[in-house]
Write a protein that binds this DNA or RNA. Structure first.
Length: 508
RNA sequence: GGUCCGUUCGUCUAGGGGCUAGGACGCAAGGUUUUCAUCCUUGUAACAGGGGUUCGAUUCCCCUACGGACUACCA
């Protein structure tokens, strides 16, 4: 029987773009599910109307798609346990909240946010902290302190209320986290969390537990920021009587900022000098643009690989993994416990590794749109040849232009430092003579050119370097670039000679 | 403040009672390439501190320090 298929979920809240930490959580869920032949579900947790950001859900979906993280059930593709958007499940939750109240695990609370805030302020003023918990709830406005008739009257009269969990005064919750081992909490220190808000929607805690139960989730893999609310969640499962189907929990270490002040956050945007989002994001209100890995030139497979290695490792020295390999190798046992500082340099290295694995044709295909945007159109075969000459020196596809622009335009100016360095008294004369000879070369290929130019240098009793450096300067305008003879071949005889003539006039 | 989690090179990490503490990124040097890049070689650099336990602790235990998360009618 296949009763033990695992089902995991990624449950982001559409309050803005997903950042790479969120992507990593999704990735680990995905890898875990695929590794065990289970299902991976995307569930949108949009119970906070105030923080809803238009476009965020679509962004999340596109980001996952781009990274190669496919889910089996989700808001856009449906599935047997839908709907997968909590706002569409609104009708479900109230009943569960009431069930909790009936069982004595929760209660109605009528305190207004203002009243609670005032309590907090007052406590703060006297150096204390106010907490809505077993020690204070008797003094507050709720169905535990009020007579049952009074609270019933209030509820029925339509007075705003919330439902709070009745956190036990003296209990201990112990649970084995798949990553952290045994974790113990004393309930007396915990507060009576709101489960159901006055706006008729559940809070994360209720919705999350109810949905995980309803969707038959077997493993909850989420960020470490959720660890403090784990006891609440466990107690909820118990209160509902779902203990026997309660999922296992795994709390992932956080991704920290490179600088070292806390976890990476959405608000970091571009402030850190590298993208924190998978895709570019334009804030719908402010119009502020935050760059994305995709637009910066990162390959999705590089991003996935890089993210996988943040907090997880295979225990071998392998660092480059295809998604298939990650799926095969992944396990929660090899996820570390401590937070990882994100390293933008390593991210670049990963990208370069993946770029190196592309064929000339693939790189050419990436380059053509860049050229097109500059009004340049060339034969794909020719572009592939060009790409071959520059591919070793790029980190991003965009770098290809910077490394090859001189193929499309003769130098407008010449690097003066290089001119000083390589331009000697007789240089112009000698190169002039060479260019005449080049005109006679019928097979203008790299190998032939190399042979011709080397023998020319010999006849002039010069080092080849003394010829090649000025030649490069003339052709490219600077001292660096691809292999000179390959460059000449690709440029072709006419253009090569034209540039030499032009340069000879302009350099003194 | 309270609760919980964590701590191996600058960074990501392997390891785990006895190892020259391994790899990768970065950085540095050398070699190849008459340039640059690639590539190769080498180097750089770590077990937070203090107590235990032990013949022996980086590894196990405790404390301290430091870091982090959480502490909303947000997720």
């Amino acid at each position: 029987m296949k009763s033990t298929v695992c089902r995991v979920r990624f449950a982001p809240s559409p309050t803005g773009p997903l950042h790479i930490g969120g992507i990593r959580t999704a990735l680990f869920n995905f890898l875990f599910a695929r590794n065990r032949g289970g299902e991976f579900i995307l569930r949108i947790e949009d119970t906070d109307q105030a923080r809803f950001v238009p476009g965020a859900e679509q962004y999340i979906i596109e980001s996952l798609k781009w990274c190669g993280i496919q889910y089996d059930e989700g808001p856009d593709i449906g599935g047997p346990y839908g709907p997968y958007r909590q706002s569409d499940r609104k009708a479900i939750y109230r009943e569960f909240a009431e069930r909790l109240i009936a069982g004595g695990h929760a209660y109605y609370a009528f305190d207004t946010p203002e009243e609670i805030n005032a309590k907090r302020k007052a406590a703060e003023a006297s150096g204390n902290t106010f907490q809505y918990d077993w020690s204070t709830r008797r003094q507050l406005n709720n169905s535990l302190s009020l007579s049952s008739g009074e609270s019933k009257k209030r509820v029925e009269s339509g007075m705003p209320y919330v439902v709070r969990f009745r956190m036990p005064e003296n209990d201990e919750v112990s649970i084995t986290d798949l990553i952290r081992g045994e974790v113990v909490f004393r309930t007396g220190l915990l507060d009576d969390k709101v489960l159901f808000k006055a706006d008729g929607l559940p809070t994360y805690h209720l919705a999350n537990v109810v949905d995980d139960y309803l969707m038959k989730i077997t493993h909850v893999i989420r960020g470490e920021e959720w660890l403090p609310s784990l006891p609440l969640h466990i107690l909820l499962y118990k209160a509902f009587g779902w203990e026997d189907v309660m999922p296992s929990f795994a709390h992932l270490p956080l991704i920290l900022k490179p600088g070292g002040q806390g976890k990476l956050s959405k608000r970091d945007g571009d402030k850190l000098g590298f993208p924190v989002f998978p895709l570019q994001w334009v804030d719908p209100v402010s119009g502020e643009v935050s760059s994305g890995y995709r637009e910066t030139g990162y390959l999705p497979e590089a991003v996935a690989n890089m993210l996988a290695m943040l907090g997880w490792n295979p225990g071998t020295e392998q660092e480059l993994f295809t998604m298939e390999e990650l799926i095969r190798t992944f396990s929660l046992e090899r996820v570390g416990r401590s937070g990882s500082r994100f390293d933008p340099e390593k991210a670049k290295w990963y990208n370069q590794q993946y770029l190196k694995r592309k064929t000339d044709e693939e790189l050419a295909a990436m380059f053509m749109p860049v050229l097109a945007s500059r009004g340049i159109e060339r034969d794909p075969g020719w572009i592939a040849k060009l790409v071959r000459l520059i591919r070793e020196r790029i980190v991003f596809p965009q770098d290809m232009w910077e490394k090859s622009f001189f193929f499309f335009q003769a130098p407008l100016q010449y690097d003066q430092q290089m001119v000083k360095k390589v331009w000697k008294n007789h240089t112009a004369e000698i190169i002039g003579a060479l260019s005449v000879q080049l005109l006679e070369v019928t097979d203008f290929s790299s190998t032939v050119l190399e042979e011709k130019i080397k023998s020319f240098a010999e006849r002039q009793h010069m080092g080849t370097g003394q010829i090649m450096a000025p030649l490069r300067l003339l052709l490219v305008g600077s001292g660096t670039g691809p292999h000179l003879f390959d460059l000449m071949e690709l440029l072709g005889k006419d253009e090569t000679v034209r540039r030499i003539q032009k340069g000879l006039h302009e350099i003194h």
